[in-house]
Nucleic acid binder design. Structure first.
Lengths: 190, 190, 190, 190
DNA sequence: ACGTAACCGAGACGGTACGTCTAGTCTTTCA
DNA sequence: TGAAAGACTAGACGTACCGTCTCGGTTACGT
């Protein structure tokens, strides 16, 4: 990855940071569709070319913001208290609390749109929400502990959990109090 | 609503239809982000002003296309064969088949993006995908027939079913063969 | 002109007046190039069609305003005191004073532009500024009184007088104190 | 004024020329009021933004065309044959000939309209028509040669000459044969 | 130490689409 | 049937960004 023996100045790290910060700020404030390269360049006091040199697209900027934890700063890892349902409920409530907090309104929606344009964004989104790897691990552990039938279709289970979150958020309906609990009861055995 | 006794010419219905048809065609062909007012106006052989007179935004056009059933043309009503699981599986497979058919690739993604911009689109989308009107009835019937516990949280059930579809589609992962069946087994009692 | 025996309502004189008043007001305030049919219609609370029905063009409106003395309200007739030069100087100063008064800044320019589009405006402009008919009479009287050589080319004399006013105004240079006097001395014998 | 050491690409001179040529051509062909930025951009094969970047308005384009001698190409310098009247008559006839030639019909009117919108156009127009620079010199020479009284108000003389031309042209009356001669006789001593 | 390759800012450029405005024409309803 | 209200096509307006490009200046490695 690191180009050895190349001439010329090193990549300006300050510029890179400034660009990602400007990107994050704009996504958080106005959403992904209001994100413009020119705006980021202006905010970061950087020339457009410096952005285009390193990122191929708007969505790539967002992907790197995710990778750098400048968006979705929290990493949601389900605990393993022994009680699967309780753990999943807590995990859901954490995410719901994060998405509902003042600074993050519309963030998931923005990221979903970016994710439709860019697979990397989708990957990071899944990772950060702890969806596939972390939740998967928790489920495997649950199967081993006989809290979950061995033939549970884990992919579908994950999609249903995540999907319920997503469609609620997309609909703009907000999350009522019992949502996490009801969903967990519905999908997981006691 | 109906303005009584107003002077002046009536709204040109042909123009309205042509605009919505052009909108639908462009969304289906190139997706929502390639949809431009100028393009629609050109296709519909109408002046831009006629579009701006009646619709405030790009997304409002799409919302009306949905309302007029020019997008998501097929309406999926689950049957009531007495076997809830089987009915839901068939319903899921219908939708999957529709979403996967050549003309509709990316359609859901487009509509979801439009839905993030416009609450009406979101509403129509929820309605159209049959969740509330159609699946709701089926679930109520199932409760009455003791195929579903009376305390099942129907909203969460619907979100989980629909959401699983949505995230799969968004992820671009495609639907494998067992998806509908696995999902139904996961969410519904035998 | 008057259509005899025709049925239906008569032309609405109030509308006509309102249209001309709106036209005059707009020309005086913002100049001829800011004059729009839509603006006049809005000001006069009249439909566009009512304007188009009776006037073929923007400039025709201005022409009628001139004819109705709603623009260039003062009529400049040179006196005949026996002293031609003095009379012309007074006449020039009257016009200069009028053109320079607060409400009329740019008016001549506006009317000149309208005149290039519409012969009627040109005619009215000439009439109203007293040029041809009124100044012509004064010159004829001067010839008879031996204050002006009989072979003076009156058309050129008038053009030179009027033209000097016009180019000064167009240039936006303003009229200095001696202008009227100098011009009269230059063009007329003592 | 000249930006020293500025970075970035230089202004494209070819584009500038093409824009001014397109402007000139359109003014000559269809007059100033038919001049549109979009038309110029299309003719010059240049984007609209390139025009708006460098010129604030339609009239500024015309002003620069005048400054670049792409309009009113011929520069009328009065000769000095020793006979002031004869020189002025020839000068007037040259201008009349130019204004009356097929390609230039309406040109003066166009420029006058532009001049009412833009002081620079007015200035260039005065300059170009030779009044101040060129005719002024001829008059000074005439005063030195005792062909013109030393106290002749040159500004008014110029305005009268130029103004007579202008109002004739604006009136659309055309120039009859004796015009130049009569005017010169009227304004200048033998 | 010098050359040179790459970085960076600034910003011009051809484009596309935006949403607005006005021109004229045409249609409908009221009085 | 005149006038109002206003829908309609047409097309220019001036703005915002796009992604590419060209400069001039500046590192900092490699010979």
């Amino acid at each position: 990855m690191t180009e050895v023996g190349r001439r010329g100045p090193k990549r300006n790290e300050q510029a890179r940071i400034a660009i990602l910060q400007a990107t994050s700020a704009r996504v958080l404030e106005n959403g992904y569709d209001q994100l413009t390269i020119e705006g980021v360049a202006a905010d970061a006091r950087v020339s457009k070319q410096t952005i285009y040199r390193w990122w191929p697209s708007r969505s790539a900027l967002v992907a790197e913001c995710l990778a750098e934890r400048m968006l979705l700063t929290e990493f949601f890892v389900p605990e393993d208290s022994g009680d699967l349902r309780a753990d999943v409920i807590r995990w859901l409530e954490n995410i719901i609390g994060f998405l509902g907090s003042p600074g993050n309104s519309g963030l998931l929606r923005s990221l979903l749109i970016a994710a439709t344009e860019n697979t990397e964004v989708a990957t990071h989104l899944n990772e950060r929400l702890g969806m596939w790897e972390m939740l998967g691990e928790r489920f495997t552990a649950a199967i081993e502990a006989d809290q979950l039938p061995a033939d549970t279709p884990l992919a579908e289970l994950g999609d249903a959990l995540m999907g319920a979150l997503v469609v609620r958020d997309l609909r703009g309906a907000g999350f009522d109090n019992g949502f996490a609990k009801n969903l967990a009861i519905l999908l997981l055995p006691a």
